[in-house]
Simulated scan of single mutants.
Amino acid sequence: MHAPKKSALLIIDMQVALYEGPDKPWQAELLLTRINQLIARARASETPIFAARFAGPEGSPVAPGSTGWSLHPRLAVDPARDRLFDKNRPSCFAGTRLEDWLRDASIGELVVVGMKTQYCVDSTCRAAAELGYRVVLVEDAHSCMDTPALDALAIIRHHNLTLSGPFARLVKAAEVSF
């Protein structure tokens, strides 16, 4: 089991191409505002901040080095203080050093926010729980876009319900404390 006290904020795929693309995330401005508030609270308590970027194939909107691959410019992540890393799978753990960095920092709890709910947020919450981390899913600080089958709000509500309990504890952004 991981250390009982220390937590970290994990921000998933808040990238230009996903945030500013042709299909906007549900409540995009509110999402960015809430994540930035969480970043400020994490900083005030000296809680480590990790930010994942999805690195897509060459020519994709999120190809490494492209404008779309960059974290959103209004996201308050500081590359000099925070750990930015790339991934090319939905889970932030698959093929990355995230678990090593968390272990080295004695992190036992992950506060998860970002995009997209049904892919990377879901996969990361499940993987983190299986690895023994306590996962706090910020129920109003993850988002996605409408799909042909379901609108974004239905996807978010479904994943909050599905992940709550076996994989994560749901907390509203305003109630998160580090």
Rank of each mutant, 00 (worst) to 15 (best):
A8G: 11
I11L: 09
I12S: 10
I12G: 04
G21S: 01
E29A: 05
L30C: 10
L30W: 04
L32G: 05
Q37K: 08
L38P: 06
I39H: 03
A40K: 03
A42N: 04
R43D: 15
A44N: 14
T47L: 02
P48I: 05
P48A: 11
F50W: 09
A52Q: 03
A52E: 09
P57I: 12
P57T: 12
E58T: 09
S60N: 11
V62R: 08
S66M: 07
T67S: 13
H72M: 11
R74K: 11
L75G: 06
A76L: 13
D78H: 02
P79S: 11
A80Y: 11
D82R: 04
L84G: 14
F85N: 11
N88D: 15
S91G: 09
F93N: 09
G95Y: 12
W101V: 07
L102P: 05
A105N: 07
A105W: 00
A105R: 03
I107W: 08
G108F: 07
L110Y: 07
V111H: 07
G114E: 06
G114Y: 04
K116H: 13
Q118D: 15
Y119M: 12
Y119H: 14
D122S: 07
A127K: 02
A127D: 15
A128D: 08
A128V: 01
L131P: 01
L131V: 00
G132T: 05
Y133L: 06
V135Y: 07
V138H: 10
V138L: 09
D140G: 03
H142I: 01
L150R: 03
A154T: 13
A154M: 04
I156N: 08
H158G: 10
H158M: 07
N160G: 06
L161H: 05
L161W: 06
L161V: 01
L163R: 00
G165P: 07
G165T: 01
P166E: 10
P166G: 13
L170S: 09
A174L: 02
A174C: 04
